[in-house]
Design a protein around this nucleic acid. Sequence first.
DNA 1: GCAATAATAATAGTAATACTATTAATTGTA
DNA 2: TACAATTAATAGTATTACTATTATTATTGC
Lengths: 228, 228
Amino acid sequence: MQSLLRNFKVVIHESLYLKDPETSDLGKNIVGESILLIDEIGFEKFTFKKLGSRIGSNESSIYRYFENKHKLLLYLTSWYWAWMEYKLVFRTANLNDTQEVLRTAIEVLSEETKQDSDFSHVNEKILNAIIISEFSKSYLTKEVDKENKEGCFSIYKRLVGRFENIIQNAQPNYPYVESLASMVIEGVLHQHYLKQHFPSLTSCDETTMPHEFFTHLVFSTLNLSTHE
Amino acid sequence: MQSLLRNFKVVIHESLYLKDPETSDLGKNIVGESILLIDEIGFEKFTFKKLGSRIGSNESSIYRYFENKHKLLLYLTSWYWAWMEYKLVFRTANLNDTQEVLRTAIEVLSEETKQDSDFSHVNEKILNAIIISEFSKSYLTKEVDKENKEGCFSIYKRLVGRFENIIQNAQPNYPYVESLASMVIEGVLHQHYLKQHFPSLTSCDETTMPHEFFTHLVFSTLNLSTHE
DNA sequence: GCAATAATAATAGTAATACTATTAATTGTA
DNA sequence: TACAATTAATAGTATTACTATTATTATTGC
């Protein structure tokens, strides 16, 4: 997988940037370091000025790549979901059994990113961490409908759509595919967050992984046995 | 219920305010109008200055009640969850069957607030709307652990705890109560948001209510029949 | 009814944010 | 070498998120 990922280039909707950050060292640096800085100080306190001084570059140079920090967040989240989609498709590719596909999909969606796969300027482990705490902020805004029309969330929606298909294939009669798919993808992030900050509100800990909870949930909701 | 609610006074942890807004007209006005203003322009663009000019009062006067806008949001969300807890307890009070209690609880948690119950300065319908789009922002911050220790989220945690008990009573063997409870409460808000802004990602629409999806989900996960 | 006290309003001021605009310096490429 | 594109540096603006001070208005205690 490592080597395959080396050839993986994320295609991000061009309304999310002014200049494609993949086309220059500065651009890659902006993306790579913004992930680390957002993780350290949180999105609210993150500014282009701070990022500039961190990468030894100027505030205004960053503005040539991204309109503002919100668009940068949209870029990073799109990157993450494109990467997740890639993992999902790859890991379920050669499976024949629809239930096996479903089980694997839930695993891919809910597993922690253990280590930086290190095929690019992006640290996926830390990107995963900021998705858990910042993703919601990318769409819980007053501009959501406008940005949605512009295609800012298309990668995420495509991923949810893929997961919907996987669910539907495993259980063609289930009537709430869309809600189940979106709830699991969002719920996984939420459970990871609770594990870190509100342990009393989750059953997930060192011994119980989110994926166990979600596998049980989805399979019993779909009236399928988990073979466990 | 209307008349009972008239006697209902929400007790909010005092670390969330500098001066209890319930003790003056200005305070009540701050709370009441902040809900409307946040709903109109969104939490990011909401400022005490704008609120001040809206209520014909001064910015600095608002600072005597709330340390900053984040604390005000914590106050409003606590108020909402306290009100929800009240509705939950009240509506499940005289039910004997544990499954009936569970069904009702899911209904209370996932139903839309249809109209302002008008027993206070708070418009619950609009408060419900801002909870859907702003609640996550109250805890997805770098200060979450510190504020959690101070008790800022205790009402919410208590509500989740109550729902956990309801689930556990209906099915004592279920191993993921905490996660199921927290996921449903959060998931309800998420499905409502999707319904408004990403209809393709949810099965909920004019004819299908979130509560149907969640009832089916919870009952099948707990291996209980829904009698439907 | 008056004084004391508390609450509110008005004003001013600060550091930081979220940008935009202009010009200068550097680098790549034909 | 030249000229185009990129990046850096500087400056500037309006707004935000406050704090501090003083003035005014209400409330309550005696």
